[in-house]
Structure formats: C-alpha cells, structure tokens
Design a protein around this nucleic acid. Structure first.
Lengths: 245, 245
DNA sequence: AAAGGTCAAGAGCGGTGCTCTCAATTGTTG
DNA sequence: CAACAATTGAGAGCACCGCTCTTGACCTTT
C-alpha cells in the first residue's frame, strides 16, 4: 500500500515530499487525459511516463502498478462527480425536494456526457482483472446514492413523499429484510414501498444516462435528447413519490 | 470485409469452404470462452490461436483483425440473447401482454447474469477504439427492443395499454417529432406519452440489470435480488401502461 | 564531508496486435 | 492421374505493453 488518499493530508513538510506529491498529481492528471481520449482498457503506464518526460520504469517509483493508477483515477472521478452533483443539489432550495432530485439527475447526466470514458470506468463494464479496493473507493463511490437517499428521506419526513398505490406496494419479506438493514444502517424513515421505488429510480437514472453515453440509442433515433431526459426525470420523480414540482 | 454473416448461407459447397467455416466457428467458440472468462478488453487473438492449436499468425487467415473477431462475438451474443428473449416471450399467451413483458425482462436478466462478460460487451462501456459496424450489428442488436415495442404496440391496439395521467403525458414538440419518426418507421399506433414511457421502461430495464451484472449494488446491500427485480418489473409494467397482470 | 535515502535510466522478460515471406499442403482442373 | 494454383501454417520480425532488477547519480540529512 502506498499513500493513496493520504490520511487527512498532513501538510507535506520536506521539499522531497512536496515534489513527490506534485509528481503523483501530475501522473493522475495525465492519466485522466489518457483515460478521456483512449478509455480505461487502453490506459498505459508507459504512455503516461512518456508524457511525464520520464523513462517507463521511473513511473513505478510513484505508482505501484497499473491497478493503483486505475484506483487513483476511480477515486478522482467519483469525487469530481460527487462534487458536481453535490453543488447542483445544494444550489436548490432545501425544501424543494423534487427540484433537488431533478438537479441531481441533470448534474449526473451533464457530467457523464462530458466525461464518457470516466463515466464508463465508474459505471460501465468492469475492467477485466481489476478489483476496486473497497477501502479507498466505497466512500467516494457512494456519494451520489447517499445524496439521493438524503433527498428522499428529507422529503418523506417533510410529508412530501406519497407512497405508491397499495397494489404496487407489496414488498416480499425477504426484500423487506434488506430494506430494514438499509434503513437501520443509514437512519432512514422511508417505508419499504418508497425504498423499493427509490431503488428503481436510482438504477433507472443510470440506465437512461448509460444509454446515452454508451450510444445504445441508435445514432438517428432521438435528436431531442435533452427533452427526452427531462421527460424521464419527470416520470422518475413521480415514481419516487415526489408530490410538488 | 470477409464473409461475416454470410448472406443467407448458401450451403457451402466445396470441402475447403466447409473446413474454413468450421475453423471460423471454432474461433468464435474459443473467443466466446475467453470473453466469458477474461472480459472483452482482455480478448487476445494470440490466446485464441494457442487454444486452436495454431501459430499466432495463422489466425489472420480467418479473421482480419481483433475488431472483426469482436464483431463476430457481438453478433453471436446479440443473437443468443435475442433467441432466448424471443423464446421466453413466445412461451407466454399471445394476449397476455403484461406476462410477455415480464418474460422479456426475466429472460434478459437471466441471460445477463449467466453471461456477464458478453452482456458487458453489448451494453457496457464501449471497447476503446472499436466501432461496431452498423451493417452487421444493427439487425441482431435491435431484436430485444423490437420485441418490447411489438408487445407494447399489440397491447395498445388491444386496448390493454392505458396512457399515463395527463399531467405526466406532456411531450415537447421536438421530442414528439422523434416519436413521429419512430411510429412511421415501425408502423406503430402507440401515442407519444406511451412511447415516451416505453423508452424509459426500456432504459430502466437495462439499468436494473446492469447494476446487478456490474456489481454496482454493494456486495451486502441486497440479498433478495430476485424479489427486488420482480418488484422492479412490476413497477415498470405499470409505468409502461399495462392494465392486467 | 560522510552517510543515507531517493531517484532516473537502462536492460531485460514475457506478453500483445499485426505484417511479411516462405514452404507445404490441399483441392481443382487439364 | 498429374500438374497447376489456391490456400494454409510456420517463422521471423516490428512496435507496443506491464513489470522487475541493477546501476549510477543526485540530494538531504547528520
């Protein structure tokens, strides 16, 4: 283990430590560029070393291997996405829950379309042979879903989330146990039926975005993609149970 | 261009042509195995050649390059998925539209969980530097969505598809133009609001499946995944407008 | 100034996609 | 049936990849 995500960044003292941190930052920046232009599977340490102006073996002084660079880029991307989604959600009035949900969805889509390769790294097919180290990636990787869950819970507590009709609210007991654990773990008040719908809203959001980013719609099928996504967001907001908006 | 998806397979005459077709079939089979175990990005022509018991350069007698093998595997996977979905849909009574929709969703999920790497090739992040040749992939690649559209249209014509409430049915004119083109191109009767919801159902289906296949749910978050997906299918059926079932 | 830590460079291993040449095999045809 | 020609497999080779190891130079600290 090297100093990935150094614990609380203790204000690097020696010039050597500062130079080293700067070099690692440069490597991440170059890696991000390669990722954007050539995709995750084509990410090459040798190419990054070339761009850094250094012989290929020297890169291993700063990054243990390709997987560790991938992890750095994963955390980097999760955090940028989390920052942008957080800022977009925070820009909406605290009580406008539907508005916050809409902002979350739009920010996610905007980031994904701007950074398709990085979005693919986070939410596309897993990189073969690479297993993300949970210790470093779960915290940044859960920021968006925690934000969504926070909006849902706040809306429910404010009485602005109406459960779906009874016939669609049946949650089998095995699934209810999962929701119990989630509620307990995150301190939520949202009932099963709304949690179940919220889960579908979550996955559907990423399904809609992935279709666009990964080019699953044909090239000519939809020209009004902004409107299409806005419509989807509205339907998903209704599915989540938002009343106003 | 080599003879990928030979036009209507004119019953290969000469023994040479038959031997050649057999070798290509073996290559696809071996490629499928490598894909399943190591993923698309790690697919290696040299490794396939080794398994075929032949020196690496000989593989180029049958497959122009790595991309062409990828295309063969893409078509192969699309067709297997299309076959299984088609069989599952066909096993339901023709008038049980909701049942057919459910069968489609379950067949899709079953295939995806059984063949995660091939699912990732079709619906995950695009392979960097590879562009699927539309001429060979669009027909097999549209079988599932055509099946879904067919179910929706038949249900609508039978009066068993109820449009969403008016407030959720607003479709902006730019988007309506896209739906007009789709309706004309496929000879559909389904109105805008149902087509819009159907599009979301389509992407949501793949969103839910992708989350499972790509491990986006945490390892411990959901233990009752069958029930979760069944619930999602029920909610999506309601969103699509199915009345019975 | 000496000692220790840190660094870039280079050679090297086995892997990859792909090209080219050459010899052998094989099917077809006179 | 034999000669021809198309097809095929083997091998060498190029440039790239991840990664390891050794060497010599540099810089910081004592």
């Amino acid at each position: 283990m090297s100093d990935v995500a150094a614990s609380a960044e203790p204000t690097l003292r020696t010039p050597r430590e500062r130079a080293r941190a700067q070099t690692i930052a440069d490597i991440v920046r170059l890696g991000r560029e390669h990722l954007a232009t050539h995709g995750a599977a084509a990410l090459s340490l040798r190419a990054v070393a070339r761009d850094l102006g250094v012989v290929s073996s020297a890169i291993y002084r700063y990054v243990a291997n390709r997987d560790e660079l991938l992890t750095l880029l994963l955390v980097d991307a999760y955090n940028e996405l989390g920052d942008e989604v957080g800022a977009a959600v925070g820009a909406e009035p605290e009580q406008d829950y539907a508005g916050r949900f809409r902002a979350l969805g739009l920010a996610l889509r905007t980031w994904a379309l701007r950074e398709p390769a990085r979005y693919g790294l986070l939410f596309g097919s897993p990189v073969p042979g690479y297993q993300a180290p949970a210790g470093q990636t779960t915290t940044p990787g859960t920021r968006v879903i925690y934000s969504l869950v926070g909006i849902l819970d706040a809306a429910y507590r404010a009485g602005e989330l109406t459960p779906p009709p009874a016939r669609a609210a049946v949650v089998p007991s095995a699934l209810a146990a999962d929701f119990d654990a989630i509620r307990a773990g995150l301190g939520l008040a949202v009932p099963d039926s709304l949690l179940a719908n919220g889960t579908l809203v979550w996955t559907s959001l990423f399904g809609a975005v992935s279709f666009e980013v990964f080019g699953q719609y044909g090239a000519d099928t939809f020209s009004a993609r902004d409107e299409l996504f806005a419509h989807h967001l509205a339907v998903l907001a209704a599915m989540a149970g938002f009343t106003g908006g």
